[in-house]
Nucleic acid binder design. Sequence first.
DNA 1: TTGAAAGCGGTACCAC
DNA 2: GTGGTACCGCTTTCAA
Lengths: 343, 343
Amino acid sequence: MTALSDQRTATRPTMADVAAEAHVSVKTVSRVVNHEPGVRPDTAERVRAVIERLGFRRHDGARLMRQGRTFTIALVVEDLANPFYSQVSAAVEREARIRQHQLITASAEGSPTRERAVLEALIARRVDGIVVVPAGETPSADPGVEASGIPIVYMDRPVRGAHKDTVLSDNQGGVRSAVEHLVAHGHRQIAFFGDDPGFWTARQRRESFIATHGALGLPGSTRVSMGPHSTTTVRDLLAQWTRDPDPTTAIITGNNRVTLAALLAIRDLRTSIAMVGYDDFELAELIDPPVTVVHQDPAAMGQKAAQQLFSRLLGDESPPQTVVMPTRLIVRASGTRRGGPTR
Amino acid sequence: MTALSDQRTATRPTMADVAAEAHVSVKTVSRVVNHEPGVRPDTAERVRAVIERLGFRRHDGARLMRQGRTFTIALVVEDLANPFYSQVSAAVEREARIRQHQLITASAEGSPTRERAVLEALIARRVDGIVVVPAGETPSADPGVEASGIPIVYMDRPVRGAHKDTVLSDNQGGVRSAVEHLVAHGHRQIAFFGDDPGFWTARQRRESFIATHGALGLPGSTRVSMGPHSTTTVRDLLAQWTRDPDPTTAIITGNNRVTLAALLAIRDLRTSIAMVGYDDFELAELIDPPVTVVHQDPAAMGQKAAQQLFSRLLGDESPPQTVVMPTRLIVRASGTRRGGPTR
DNA sequence: TTGAAAGCGGTACCAC
DNA sequence: GTGGTACCGCTTTCAA
């Protein structure tokens, strides 16, 4: 009457326990659990009753180990609390769930060292695949990953020399659309406040800013300042540039962090300079004036990356692909303002 | 010269492969890999060399299966993209990482059915513990979880009849502080726009609103409207209530969704009614006037929940505990306004 | 210091 | 239809 593993310990019942109670073999229990055909209905019923009574549930770890797959994928980002990444993670999780996979999420906190450790751990777990927003630009990821043969998809920024699937955002096009929008509204002295040039995306955006300037025949702008930025740094520069004989009448920010700093700076200065922010944000519409932004679609990027990953898991052997997701200019009002002091 | 499992297949090398190449037993390889003492230095060196050469990495799944633990915990929420939950998940992930655990995140999308399925899957994976923001208030979780013996911590809302660790936010105190703030600034006709009363938190806040009203001897307010709310529903009610002989001069919102709707409604109506929002949000400071809010600390809640879970994993057998995390009123300017049309 | 063998909880393969 | 048994890759136990 006592199940095999039921001796004092609170361990969960196994198939062997069920088999013993139901007077069948383990294999038969396995058949019932997995709805395999070839079990007499009454036998199946008896087994099911015991399963129910014992509260048995299959140990997926054991199952998956035998099968050599874990039905688990991982997402490695810088910071899960960042809205950009949280939208990515929601999208990736969704794709995983649809395909009966679990998602392990991990933060590398921007540190290549930590990222490497995280990746090592994931490889040791034999996750089926990994989506990663790389912390560095060199294959810090690679020591293990490269050799592991685990499918990997890079997101948001590329890794030099890593011949892997990559999903990027159209940084160049995004900034270009911002500049063009401002120019269309008569601005000719535009400043750019970018984020830390240590980020590939920050450099991309800066370069596009400069290139577009040239392409449109604007006065070669030297008004480019890379971060990290605080309200103070933006405010001081802005104060200076707007006092210039040829004053700056509009600004473009390099990402949501800088946008925040810039909005505060603009408020402090009581100037009504025009602006286009990079990255959309909740309530952009509620600010006065509503903020025009370049919108990247993190959910779409995450979904795309996950889909690319799963296509590899399904056996797609084609050469690694880099897809660039389009951005969209969301025109509100801040881009159409005239520069100058607030009325 | 050929490793055991190296026949044509691209499977990764195992300890057996390493053992064969190094002319030692599997157990010795295991000792080296796990830095167990009692291996002659030169043997260890030889083994390490082979490990390096073969690119061997321990299969944690197999290891953990033998050990009966997975070093994995799970977080189940409604929607990972929601800023509240993303902050929670970042905090939980951090606690997990510190303790060498992996975190599996899953969205139940507010559906008890999906939540049940998700929990079943997690139990099957034998995660060591689960933090869950329950989708329903009845132990939908329980069929499996309750019996599984897996430590679980409920967050944000309690589950009726489930005698489990729970981390809540002080909804009552939060709303009370909001009402008191408004009353201190002379408001006596305050309206409350709550979220869907299907949510426990929404009801808690409503009840506190009404109770505080009574306690402060305010005119019994019938101006309570529960959601789901859109800009339109808020706008229409607000228009009506401010036109009343005894007009509403201030509002309190029940959460960030409603806050957004209310801000848009207020803007549409061009009224300058006072308001206190529930939940802090980025850029609250940039809105005109800056929005006073009741701040819950999602990161602190997530951290607390994770810590409670780990203390169970470490063997804490004390009775289930419910902790209520304090809220904080962040005073900006929107609460001190006078009602009436915008100047 | 080292190794053989059993076992974790399932699945795969093949016989009855 | 049903069962036996090897085996997934590692750890545990105990013997040498």
